[in-house]
Design a binder for these strands. Structure first.
Lengths: 237, 237
DNA sequence: ATTGCGGTTTCTGTATACACAAGAGCGATC
DNA sequence: GATCGCTCTTGTGTATACAGAAACCGCAAT
């Protein structure tokens, strides 16, 4: 909505409030600002190098995103993530993604999905290639999400999905990835893509339902393991 | 999230930004600020009686709510409501309410719903009593929504629903109410309540699906009529 | 008549100053 | 020794001042 200049990394002088928002958001999502961390206006403002006014605006947006909550007397803090909240988020995610996929299967232009299908077919090989492959696999998922968003053509629904994905990004950090799960997830995605291409909303919806069910199980298991033994290889999408 | 003092209309000195937010939000929802209306900071600030800083915060929250959009160069304007956007909103609403009702039917404490059932049984009589009755009927719907929210126990889902209801409030203003539709809607609500009491998520979900389908049809028909003949009695929930 | 250019004005974006409220620390008193 | 109260610090809430940018108006030229 603000500057539409930000295409292609063109570093046009961004507004201070926008800079502050992006930086704080990024730091929260990648865990640099841990859940429960206090955000003092003056402190953060001078750290980022803006004055309090734009910083306040940034924090207001983060509150609207649900990444930050105001606490009673003093200041704000980063929202924390409980196991309960993960299940709750997935209940919302389930509703939104199933609806989105259903609509995408109804309205889609098949072309981008056919292309994605080809890419997802190579996923198993991709996942053999270590971190770089995994990274490219995640990029594929992003492309799939974008294609679905475009096919859905519903700003309200897409907006709600974006909000959910913001929180998902934080959750993924909690659970390290599990190669086995990623392989299975790729197969699930393929089924969803096929259903979209076939224009079968019902199949697409059910496949999505199952995919998210497995995804949640995997995340919860990963967190369980992580809190039991201090570190182990686990999973997300 | 801010002051939790605002119970029971206790007019504790509210923060200026909160006052501005509530006033602007109210004026947008009840149509006093029409879609497309321009919001100039200085103008609005002095009208409401706050300075630009808290007003800016209020506008930022309205943007997050989707009630206001920033326009390229100059200022902000109230979001407009197209017929397309109504259908889109209902696609989101469908997903959220069906999920919420499903969860409510699973988790509910039956007591409040049994009570609501009694109230909804009297709806047909209530709707005979003119405006005051209709008003009380709408209050019943609010109570139902609150009961569902409480039963769902999912902040993410409830938060998304609240956002949708905000937009619905504006849409209801577009279409005047139709007594016949209200009577039918009451029956649909009763079915949903029964399903929740019975603890039958699937029945509750399908009943909700149908209810929203009818509701959308009614709203769209009402708007059609309104734009054809300049005024006529029409419908919402 | 239409279009391009420039001055002017108005509005936003940001910084900063001030007031008030909440908390913490310290001291005095029981 | 513990508890209550006071003060002092710190941080938010709000107002305002200043700078930069974008739109509007008028004028002129084609």
């Amino acid at each position: 909505m603000y500057t539409e200049t930000a295409m292609l990394g063109l570093d046009v002088p961004l507004r201070a409030s926008e800079r502050a928002y992006r930086q704080l958001r990024g730091e929260i999502l990648n865990g640099l600002l841990a859940p429960g961390a206090a955000l003092l206006e003056v402190e953060q403002a001078e750290r980022i190098g803006v004055s309090r006014t734009p910083l306040r605006e940034a924090v207001a947006r983060l509150i609207a995103d649900g990444l930050v909550v105001g606490r009673r007397g003093r200041g704000f803090e980063v929202t924390d993530i409980s196991v309960d909240s993960i299940s709750e988020l997935y209940e919302l995610r389930q509703a939104l993604e199933v609806q989105a996929i259903r609509l995408a299967a109804t309205r889609r232009d098949p072309a981008p999905f056919v292309e994605l299908r080809g890419a997802f077919l190579t996923a198993p090989e991709l996942l053999e290639q270590g971190d770089i492959g995994v990274h490219r696999y995640y990029a594929l998922i992003d492309e799939l999400e974008d294609a679905v968003d475009a096919a859905v053509e519903n700003p309200f629904l897409v907006g709600a999905l974006r909000a959910v994905r913001t929180h998902l990004a934080r959750i993924r950090r909690l659970a390290r990835r599990n190669p086995l799960r990623l392989r299975a997830a790729a197969a699930e995605h393929l089924l969803i893509i096929d259903a979209i291409i076939a224009g079968d909303p019902s199949l697409a919806a059910h496949a999505t339902h199952i995919h998210l069910h497995q995804s949640l199980l995997s995340v919860l298991a990963a967190i369980d393991e992580d809190s039991a033994s201090s570190r182990s290889a686990t999973a997300a999408d």
